[in-house]
Design a protein around this nucleic acid. Sequence first.
DNA 1: TCCAATAGTTCAAGATATCCGAACAACGGA
DNA 2: TCCGTTGTTCGGATATCTTGAACTATTGGA
Lengths: 109, 109
Amino acid sequence: MARFIHPDLKDVPLESMLHALSDPSRLAIVRCLNRNLADGGAGLACNAAVTEELPRATMSNHFTLLRGAGLIESRKKGVSVINRLRRDEVDARFPGLLDAVLGATGQGL
Amino acid sequence: MARFIHPDLKDVPLESMLHALSDPSRLAIVRCLNRNLADGGAGLACNAAVTEELPRATMSNHFTLLRGAGLIESRKKGVSVINRLRRDEVDARFPGLLDAVLGATGQGL
DNA sequence: TCCAATAGTTCAAGATATCCGAACAACGGA
DNA sequence: TCCGTTGTTCGGATATCTTGAACTATTGGA
């Protein structure tokens, strides 16, 4: 099982980040991780960050994509993978983007 | 040839808008239309809003998608279609989003 | 130590979406 | 009316996404 790859945010194009955020399931995960971060949490396991019922393979793909877009950092902890939103780094790379996305209302949240 | 469909912004989910913006060609179009708007322009024909060389069918698809996401308004003018960024409405619906997206730097612009 | 349970990953195939050439429609000008 | 221009539509090729099944890694208990 390969180690997780976490890109430097400066190498992440805006398009990749927007694409990662443009899926309802992934957006829900990001919202969830953002709440956890705001609450001083240490991150969430994949299954704990997913609200809806989702096939495991699909969930795994979503997390891989979020990692690839620089949105989350993942580390193995026992049998789980703990995920953390890279809030500060994303904010530094794309100022205001996460604020706008996470602050948006209507249409399911 | 069917008339253009312009959704009410309140019916546009954030995911659709992010998806529309997550493509390099479409993002370039939006940037172009934003400049035109800032310069007091009356909008741009499809081919004038596209920087790179792009097949016509592909270009048409991109504009249809941008319209469907509520990002642009299109009207027929002679043989052309004039497109305008729906800046104010998008800003009202998703405050700060376009600022963040259009203000982003690095990685090709 | 061995076995079962849990959390995710990987693979591969089917479902979806995107891309783009070719044919077409709409309009303006000569 | 005929032609050139702009963009749309259609359909097939290509790429991406989804997900069941098999697998890996780790923990806890017998």
